[in-house]
């Protein structure tokens, strides 16, 4: 029986999303956590001007914090009863596992970001115009793809490690720093906060797209050896 990468990817993504729908970790734990982070920032900064200026950065920071929980959760499902071992023994293409887990993480992060951006509009009173919306959507898609690829890659790397709960953020934070910076700058452009224009944001989106391509390709090539003993 041959196993195509796309079939494995679809099966893994569907399985991860089904588990999420059933356990509701995103809706019952991650969303309230990220909402609390947004509210705490609002209390801490307590100035509409400042909040509007930094809204983009706060949304992406809350996304990163929440991403750690999601990545750990998605690999805990695989390692809890040795399912990742079973997938390896079955000769399942690691590229399929990588793409499937990345896709599921991408969708979960996207849901989270939509809620975070809505809460930024409500809490921080930011607004976005027509061209800004196009920039924002492109930025969100590229940044989320990058985060999903790099999260899956490092999640696989630390899946079998001792102390993975603390190791993952330690390894992942420096790597996702470029996403935080670029996505924040592009979002500021989309919101036209701090005097920047929408046009200035596209260069940052190009960096985000490059980041996503590099880690997507890197993950496809190296995920197999990362999950080997």
């Amino acid at each position: 029986m041959s196993m195509s990468v796309s079939r494995v990817a679809r099966a893994v993504a569907a399985k991860d999303l089904r588990i999420e729908l059933r356990t509701r970790v995103v809706t019952n734990q991650v969303l309230p956590f990220s909402g609390l982070v947004m509210i705490m920032f609002a209390f801490a900064l307590d100035s509409d001007d400042v909040l509007q200026r930094v809204a983009g950065g706060l949304v992406w920071l809350a996304t990163l914090f929440s991403m750690f929980i999601l990545v750990q959760r998605t690999f805990a499902v695989e390692t809890y009863d040795g399912a990742l071992d079973s997938l390896r023994v079955a000769g399942v293409q690691p590229q399929g596992i990588f793409l499937g887990k990345s896709l599921a993480l991408f969708i979960e992060l996207l849901v989270l970001e939509v809620v975070l951006f809505i809460s930024a509009v409500v809490l921080y009173r930011v607004s976005v115009g027509g061209l800004g919306a196009v920039l924002l959507v492109t930025c969100v898609l590229c940044a989320t793809a990058g985060l999903a690829f790099v999260g899956t890659l490092y999640g696989g790397l630390t899946a079998g490690a001792r102390g993975r709960e603390t190791l993952l953020p330690l390894l992942l934070l420096p790597v996702v720093a470029p996403v935080l910076i670029c996505a924040t700058r592009a979002t500021e452009s989309a919101f036209e906060s701090g005097g920047v224009t929408v046009g200035e944001g596209w260069a940052w989106v190009a960096v985000l797209a490059t980041f996503a391509c590099v880690f997507g390709l890197g993950g496809l090539l190296s995920f197999g050896s990362l999950i080997e003993e």
Partner: peptide, 12 residues
């Protein structure tokens, strides 16, 4: 290979 673990997904 069926090891000490079953390789199943508990929530499915």
């Amino acid at each position: 290979l069926l090891g000490h673990q079953n390789g199943l997904f508990a929530d499915l």
